[in-house]
Design a protein around this nucleic acid. Structure first.
Lengths: 342, 342
DNA sequence: ATGAAAGCGCTAACAA
DNA sequence: TTGTTAGCGCTTTCAT
């Protein structure tokens, strides 16, 4: 004898998910009691609680997170807009693990180094009312986020500052890292050291090239033709490399400003790196398996990710506190390519 | 002359985000008109539309996606539960790009090879009422998902079948890939070929080890001591490698069953891979930079990701259709390590 | 300890 | 073309 709503099971089409109302009816209790049990409220009699739990199981009830969030205002999730979600990303791992530990869910989206995609990703996070946003900035101008920040959205930038925005930021010690690389090479006796790195329109590229110039003039070296920032394309990198080698006083050592440049240089150098000493900025997975092993300046990825979450939490607790910028130090890892004499 | 609700701006604390009601009041139109403009409904007079747009800008209004989804029933997002969100993941890239192209947002979560985390991730996606779920299964038993599937949730598994579940699936041609690797080595004259790979409790490990046994017996070789499946730990891999080399008839060639094993083997072999020929399952980023370059069987990551979205879309269109399993073929890429004679 | 009713911000029916 | 009303599924007062 079908009741008035037994027609619901009309076919394989969208057998409407059970709601709290369904559970309440099934258990013979009030809606509010189901809500209490589902949320672990202890002020419910054991017999009532049991009836609810059993009804939940029988119906396969799962609370609708959207409704819950809409009503309660909370979200319990933070967004992370990173450059390439599909590439290895140690900072993202640290963000994910740290957030889990404090009960936050991380929703990651990819910007693919595209300003418009960054905006899309970030705005989509805002429309989902994320409790906070961590961003690896790519856009040249982040004013579009100002209204959200004014409305109380906690934002943290990492790797680069978010141009045009006063937000909490976590950066690598780019200048210190370059200084480490440079000092390591001079300690081996190198004096003619070249640099190939990112475009100076990019924050890290600018920082690292500048630091390298400072280091080079610091030992009285000539800057002329030794510093090559620019787009990271194999042809451009190869040309820069040729310029460093085909001169009366060729460079005997080389610092590369980021992972992609390091790889491009190694491809261009060929076997044994052509006898040139090399220190690369950024560590990477198989650096120890190349011949020679690649000496690198490693960034503190784990600490960067952890710090980003910490800054976000601090701001959630107090939106009025002044913004902070944390600099995370780098570490030189010798593996062979940077330990040969001139 | 402040109105009854002008007290809202009481301080820097949560200056309450504007809602559609606020926009409607600001623009002097009905709520429904704002909704129409925000959603691009064309049946709105240009003067009204303009007033709404201007009010939206003035207030910095952003629609609340949660409310929209709750009311409309749609979500417009699919979840992807992958093994390691922070590692390079070409399939995830393809999933993301393909989904974007059809207007779907992808929310990725990490399972970290942990059964419980897989469940957490997947259930969290269900509670957010994702329009579908793509899963790289790790759990041995996925019955927990059956109620969701019965309730109409489209699910697609990739890389491995979802044990205990009848869902659409995309797999690599593991057996074909191993056959390719084997044939490549026999073509160089190798007859004593060893295999080191994943534990056979894992689907891909089982498939690949089995295929290798078939290939080896196919040329009349002895299986005795030549096939080494097991956990991918450096010590275990090194032991297996030693067993293959320290015998009266040492292996002259080797097939490795996955990326991690390939790397562990290369670490153990040292310079020039100890003169042994090597073909690895799974391509990886710097395979061409090692000496020798590493010959691999590459999986069709891009096609796998694209197919996963296609299967999901097909099921969203028709929940009743029988499940399908698509096998994506592999491709051998010679780079040097697999082209030496015995 | 339990329940009834209001309402989060939005879209979908249905007027006008 | 524009506005009014109801209600998505849940949590939150407020009563009992």
């Amino acid at each position: 004898m079908p009741g008035p709503d037994a027609v619901g099971k009309s076919g394989p089409h969208h057998p409407r998910r059970p709601t709290m109302v369904d559970v309440a009816r099934e258990a013979g209790v009030a809606l509010r009691t189901v809500s209490r049990v589902v949320n672990g409220d202890t002020t419910v009699g054991e017999d009532f609680a049991e009836r609810v739990r059993s009804a939940v199981d029988r119906l396969g009830y799962q609370p609708d997170e959207r409704a819950r969030q809409l009503r309660s205002g909370r979200t319990g999730a933070i967004g992370a807009a990173v450059r390439h979600i599909a590439d290895a990303h140690p900072v993202l791992r640290a963000i994910d693990e740290t957030a889990r530990a404090v009960g936050l869910t991380v929703v990651a989206m990819s910007t693919e180094d595209d300003e418009e995609r960054e905006r899309d990703a970030v705005m989509s996070m805002c429309r989902r009312r994320m409790d906070g946003i961590i961003i690896e900035p790519i856009a040249q101008d982040h004013h579009y986020l100002q209204p959200e920040i004014d409305a109380g959205l906690p934002v943290v930038a990492f790797d680069r500052p978010a141009a045009g925005l006063d937000v909490d930021t976590v950066l690598s010690d780019n200048r210190g890292g370059i200084a480490q690389a440079f000092a390591h090479l001079t300690a081996q006796g190198h004096r003619r050291i070249g640099y190939i790195g990112d475009d100076e329109r990019i924050h890290t590229g600018r920082e690292r090239a500048t630091a390298f110039r400072d280091a080079l003039s610091g030992i009285g070296g000539t800057l002329d033709g030794m510093v090559h920032p620019g787009p990271v394309e194999p042809a451009r990198v190869a040309a820069a490399l040729a310029a460093l080698r085909d001169r009366p006083d060729p460079a005997t050592a080389l610092v590369t400003g980021n992972f992609n440049t390091t790889v491009a240089v190694i491809r261009a150098l060929g076997a044994d790196f052509g006898g040139i000493a090399l220190v690369g900025f950024d560590d990477f997975g198989l650096a120890d398996l190349l011949r020679p092993g690649v000496t690198v300046v490693a960034q503190g990825d784990e600490e960067i990710g952890r710090t980003a979450i910490e800054l976000l939490s601090a701001r959630r607790a107090n939106r009025a506190r002044p913004t902070r910028t944390v600099i995370v130090s780098t570490r030189l890892i010798p593996r062979g390519s940077g330990e040969s004499a001139p």
